[in-house]
Simulated scan of single mutants.
Amino acid sequence: MSLRPRPQGVLLILCGSALLRIALFSELYLRYVKEGLRPYLVVSGAALIALGLLGLFTRDHGREWDEEDSHVEGDGHDHTRNPRIAWLLTAPALALLLFPPPALGSYSAEREEARVAAQGAGTFPELPAGDPLDLTLGVFASRAEWDTGASLKGRTVRLTGFVTRDDDGAWSVARLRVTCCAADAQALKVEVRGADAPAADSWVQVTGTWHPTGRPGTDAARPVLDAVSVKRTTAPSDPYEKR
């Protein structure tokens, strides 16, 4: 009897290890799913590793090679063994373990821009006191587009996100909002005026004032900020904006 490794088991172990790496030993999982799904990723990773270890080796009972009990066909190849090319499947699994994909960035934002969900134009509650006031891009965009009470008027706000650049030279600070995972991400973008554009995908904090563009509730009303200052910052551990 002999023991030989099977590529299926190695694949399961690598995939399970990748899940544990991003969910148990770091916060990289926040690039792909919401925080509440972490326990499910950990359990899934552990289960994949357990299944991989269980199936890593298969027992291959020795046989006497004779004409009546031979598995070697006329072409001279032993078809009872796993093809060696199957081991190439471990390459993408190993890459996933060693080099996790980055979070979605400007490429996704430019192609998946979506309006903030709203029932229609109306008066919004007053904003908290303090200047500059830290706002999410979702809050700023919804008030800029729908608030007939102009609650942003006269207020200095600070927005944090990554940079997207348009072909016409305009640029925006953006953030992606997820409902469940990165697959359903929606882009939130606020155009920035009065400041030079940093490099695309760089994270910035933009401080400025609301620039009205049209009557709330119409297509002319867009989220635009007149910048007072733009500072580079590091990407947060959770790059996505919560609802």
Rank of each mutant, 00 (worst) to 15 (best):
A221M: 09
T213P: 05
A235K: 12
E112A: 14
P212C: 08
W65L: 11
A170H: 10
E35P: 00
P101W: 03
E191M: 10
F140C: 07
L24M: 10
A197F: 10
T156W: 09
R143C: 02
D201T: 10
L54Y: 14
R177G: 09
L133P: 01
D60N: 09
G169H: 12
P39F: 13
S142A: 14
R84F: 09
E73S: 12
D167L: 15
V10I: 15
A103K: 04
G74E: 14
E112N: 15
T207G: 08
L19V: 04
E241R: 05
L96D: 06
G217V: 12
A46R: 00
Y32G: 03
D226I: 08
G122W: 13
E112M: 10
G138K: 13
I22W: 01
A118K: 02
W203N: 06
W210V: 05
V43L: 11
F25H: 13
A93T: 02
G9F: 09
G169Y: 14
P239C: 12
V228G: 04
R6E: 11
L159N: 02
L135G: 07
D226E: 12
A150P: 00
L24V: 05
L104E: 05
T164E: 10
L94R: 03
G120N: 09
A197Y: 11
S17E: 00
A199I: 11
D219H: 06
Q8R: 14
R59L: 08
A227I: 04
V178I: 15
E68P: 07
L135N: 05
L96G: 07
D131Y: 04
S44L: 14
E112V: 14
L28G: 05
R38K: 13
P100C: 12
V42D: 08
A121M: 08
T160D: 05
T58D: 06
S108Y: 11
L51D: 01
L28Y: 03
A18E: 01
D219F: 08
L135E: 13
D196G: 15
E73D: 09
S172L: 13
A95I: 12
G169W: 12
G74Q: 14
D168A: 14
A86V: 00
A195G: 05
A91I: 15
Q119K: 15
L48V: 01
A47Q: 06
G154F: 15
R31G: 04
L28N: 06
S26W: 09
R21N: 11
R38D: 02
A91C: 06
D69L: 07
I49V: 15
A93Q: 02
L54C: 10
A170I: 02
R111D: 10
I22K: 01
R165A: 15
A221P: 01
D147C: 04
T207N: 06
R193C: 08
V139N: 13
C15H: 02
L97I: 06
P102T: 03
C15R: 00
S106T: 04
A183Y: 01
L152Y: 04
D60F: 11
W65T: 07
E191T: 12
R31N: 12
H79S: 07
K242P: 00
K34M: 06
L51A: 15
W87N: 02
A86E: 01
L54V: 10
I13K: 01
S151T: 15
A103H: 03
L159Y: 05
